[in-house]
Simulated assay, not measured.
Amino acid sequence: MLVLLAFIIIFHITSAALLFISTIDNAWWVGEDFFADVWRVCFNSTNCTEINDTFQGYSTLQAVQATMILSTILCCISFLIFVLQLFRLKQGERFVLTSIIQLMSCLCVMIAASIYTDRREDLHRDNADLYALTSEGTYGYAFILAWVAFACTFTSGLMYLILRKRK
């Protein structure tokens, strides 16, 4: 049982780390000489432009920012609730509250990555000065980590739903 508990804790911490990295790092859309994410666009690793309200499609990026931050916060809260429930629940009860919060985190990261996937082309095309420089790119590792974090949070949410407190 201790091995299973250690695995679940490590898996949850890994999910939170993936969410932190994918939210913070500047590699959602990358090319030869640029990096872009939901916070800024950098050319030649030195010339960075913050994405603000003058950026066309800023409200779309704000939705991605907000849901990624919310997903990270919910993942951390679900871990704290798991630790509290570990000591408070009676034997045989399920970690339902932890599961619900973790699945809400999963939903938030899925929404953020889906919005970015759907609107990325529009975001770059609407900003003509950046589009010429960023049109030839690919999804970066932070974007891929967001989808991996989705799978991890979904899996851990289901694990908590199934898991019962045993001796």
Rank of each mutant, 00 (worst) to 15 (best):
F55E: 03
Y139F: 15
C42W: 14
Y58N: 05
M110L: 15
F143R: 03
N44L: 08
A112Q: 10
K167R: 06
F154N: 00
A17C: 11
L163E: 05
T138N: 04
Y139V: 04
T46C: 01
D37K: 01
W29Q: 14
I13R: 03
A113T: 15
A27S: 15
L2N: 07
S78R: 09
G57N: 04
E32P: 00
R88S: 03
L84T: 13
D33Q: 06
V83D: 13
G92L: 11
T14R: 05
C75D: 13
W147H: 02
F7V: 13
I77T: 01
Q85D: 12
V38E: 09
R166E: 00
Y116P: 04
G31T: 14
E136S: 13
C75N: 11
T49S: 09
A66P: 00
Y116F: 15
G137K: 08
S156T: 07
E93K: 14
V83T: 15
A149L: 01
V30W: 02
D37T: 11
A128R: 07
V64K: 05
V3N: 12
L18C: 08
A149E: 02
W29S: 08
V83I: 15
T60Y: 04
C106V: 02
L97M: 09
L61Y: 07
E121M: 10
A142T: 13
T134Y: 00
F79M: 07
G31K: 08
F79P: 03
F55M: 01
A113D: 06
T117I: 03
F150M: 02
A151K: 01
I73S: 07
V109C: 10
S59L: 06
F150C: 00
N44D: 11
L19M: 11
L145Q: 01
A36L: 15
L18K: 00
S15D: 14
L158S: 05
A128N: 01
H12D: 02
I21F: 09
F143D: 02
T155C: 05
I21L: 13
D122T: 08
Q56V: 03
R164N: 04
